[in-house]
């Protein structure tokens, strides 16, 4: 049995007066460890004073503006390129 750790999105407040900004993602078994890993990874040069972590699966994204032809298809098919669907183990390709 090897269980994969879920993906978390990391938001960092770089200093007082600024809002939290998306810094990247990481893997962690749970929220507590995600916070700690985020501290180590995204603030090891004092880049932040506060961190949020959110399970990537919990993020609901809007579709970009449908009037822009470049973005039209993602409104049409929101499921086309998302990162976070579950598929059975063993199914893999790029």
């Amino acid at each position: 049995m090897t269980q994969n750790w879920p993906l978390w999105e990391v938001f960092v407040r770089s200093r007082r007066g600024l809002s939290h900004t998306h810094a990247g993602s990481l893997h962690a078994p749970d929220a507590e460890m995600a916070l700690r890993n985020a501290r180590d990874l995204y603030t090891r040069r004092n880049e932040g004073i506060s961190i949020w972590v959110v399970p990537s699966t919990e993020i609901t994204a809007s579709s970009p503006d449908e009037r822009d032809p470049f973005f039209a298809p993602s409104a049409d098919k929101p499921y086309r390129h998302p990162t976070f669907y579950d598929i059975p183990e063993g199914v893999s390709h790029l």
């Binding site: 499921y79 086309r80 199914v91």
Partner: peptide, 29 residues
């Protein structure tokens, strides 16, 4: 947790004669 790409996504099964297999018409493509 493994992410899905278009070929295995739910739309892959929806391909009809009008589509190119990625779920969209040739024109749109």
């Amino acid at each position: 947790m493994v992410a899905v790409t278009p070929e295995t996504g739910p739309d892959a099964a929806l391909g009809t004669d009008e589509t190119d297999g990625t779920g969209m018409t040739a024109d749109l493509g």
